[in-house]
Design a protein around this nucleic acid. Sequence first.
DNA 1: CTGCATCCGACTCGATACTG
DNA 2: CAGTATCGAGTCGGATGCAG
Lengths: 137, 137
Amino acid sequence: MDTRRSDSQGDGLPFSVFARDCPSRGTLEHVTGRWGSLTLGALGEDTVRFNELRRRIDGVSEKMLSQTLHALERDGLVHREAQTTNPPRVEYRLTELGRETTRRLLDLIRLVEGRMPEVLAARETYDAAHTARTASA
Amino acid sequence: MDTRRSDSQGDGLPFSVFARDCPSRGTLEHVTGRWGSLTLGALGEDTVRFNELRRRIDGVSEKMLSQTLHALERDGLVHREAQTTNPPRVEYRLTELGRETTRRLLDLIRLVEGRMPEVLAARETYDAAHTARTASA
DNA sequence: CTGCATCCGACTCGATACTG
DNA sequence: CAGTATCGAGTCGGATGCAG
């Protein structure tokens, strides 16, 4: 059966990201996506306002941050608290689930960052091999 | 100072995904991207051929898998071994760095999958609140 | 079998402008 | 400050066709 593909990865969970129509795939993408991961990481343990968040994530546009925040809020990872005062003040912070998720995410990010020298070296090797092939052709 | 942003996340690493021009951002995207994460997870501890990999990842196109594999190979996460025999046989497997990365990634995936019921519930709540607002308007 | 090249539509993203 | 609406450029991604 196609829907049992997850077994080949040996997880035995009720959902499987490996299946095309699995809902966890969407959530995983919100979490790991370009802005999702950065947003979660930038929130961390803090309670942060919209523009502060925007400043923390270098390069994110208003639109993308807003969009990302909505997706994460919808998935129950981020809590949004709006005060209808003037000036408006909206604060975002991680839910418990969001913190758990972010913890794992940061483990991953830290690993990747810590190993970047290896990655960069691998890239050079790869590129050298490839340009050599192209150049010699 | 802008380049110290990473400190606000308390990691103190030499790279910071939060900075726009940080090379780790690209690698992180390869790893966590739509197909990258699934490819790494599908490789696991195995040595897998191209089409077998394609079968494991439900919905991936040839093009995307090939592209993803190249990116991961370039980053030193995946090892590619091509036998120039006939028929051609190309095997992919994770490097040590790839396995480390995948381990973290699977921690994250498992968490997300395990908590999907919560996510789904949060979505319903969110959607209900939103459609209510829209409907009542 | 394992791929690369090309075409082309769909969707994403970012800049801008505008609202409360 | 905290967004939403719109629009155009760019990228993603799938289908097809071809090559070793």
